[in-house]
Amino acid sequence: MTTSTTETGVSPSVEQRLGYLADRIEIQDLVTRYGLGQDLHQDGDNDVLAEWDRVFAPEATVDYSVTGAPLDGVTYQELAEFMRRPGGSMSGIRNWQHFEGLPTVDIDGDTATARTPHLHTHKGGTDDAGWNLIQTGFFVDRLERRPEGWRIVHRRLEILWMDTFPTTNPA
């Protein structure tokens, strides 16, 4: 549903518009909670699922295969394990922050799609020989309304560009 007119050319009611806005805000919060799940759990705290269990449906799958890793059709729990286990993909990263932009959201009853731009920053290496990584791209989500609220049932990562550069210490 859009907030202007429906496919029939009839303007949605105030109740329909408010319902759409409430759903959209809930989905936006859900998308942001994904990044918070990453960012609130650093320095050896690997309990990313404390937030992600409120983001994804229990059976949700992800496709992060664009990274080159075998991560197409895996569960979000397997993704967390891949990233956060000892020796995992985030084990060489000291700090990070995940900025999730405002998604475009299309809602059709109890299903929705969202496309969210992201900017992810990572600091790795040692203090003497550190490096930074920036990744930009999109998350493309399929969502379902569940009794507990909106949940992502499938997420695909798209990377627009990624770059690394050395850490500098200002004089």
Rank of each mutant, 00 (worst) to 15 (best):
Y76W: 15
Q16H: 00
H122K: 06
R94P: 00
S4W: 09
S11D: 13
L119S: 02
P147Q: 11
T32A: 15
G19I: 00
H122Q: 14
D108Q: 12
F56H: 05
T121S: 12
V55F: 04
T121G: 10
E7N: 09
G19C: 05
T32E: 09
H98R: 04
G92T: 12
H98S: 02
G109L: 01
E148F: 08
D72L: 11
H154K: 08
T126A: 08
Q135H: 03
E100P: 05
L102D: 12
T168Y: 11
E148Y: 08
Q135M: 13
Q38M: 11
H120G: 08
L133A: 09
G124K: 05
D106C: 00
H120Q: 10
E51T: 10
L133H: 06
D47N: 14
E78A: 12
F82M: 05
T126D: 09
L71P: 01
D127L: 11
Q28Y: 08
G35I: 02
G9W: 09
D63A: 04
E158V: 15
T113E: 02
A171L: 12
T104H: 14
L79E: 02
A57H: 08
R115N: 10
R33S: 03
A112D: 03
G130Y: 08
A80K: 09
W52G: 02
A129C: 10
P58C: 07
G124F: 01
Q38H: 13
L18F: 07
Y64H: 07
V105N: 02
P117I: 10
R84E: 04
R17W: 01
Q77C: 00
R84M: 13
L79Q: 04
G37V: 01
W161F: 11
F139S: 02
M83A: 15
G124V: 04
T67I: 09
L36N: 11
D47Y: 08
E144A: 12
G109T: 06
K123E: 15
R142K: 15
T164Y: 04
M162K: 14
L18R: 09
G130H: 05
L157G: 00
T167W: 01
V153I: 13
D29V: 07
P117M: 07
F138H: 14
E51W: 12
E51R: 12
E51M: 13
S89M: 04
E158T: 14
T126C: 07
A60V: 06
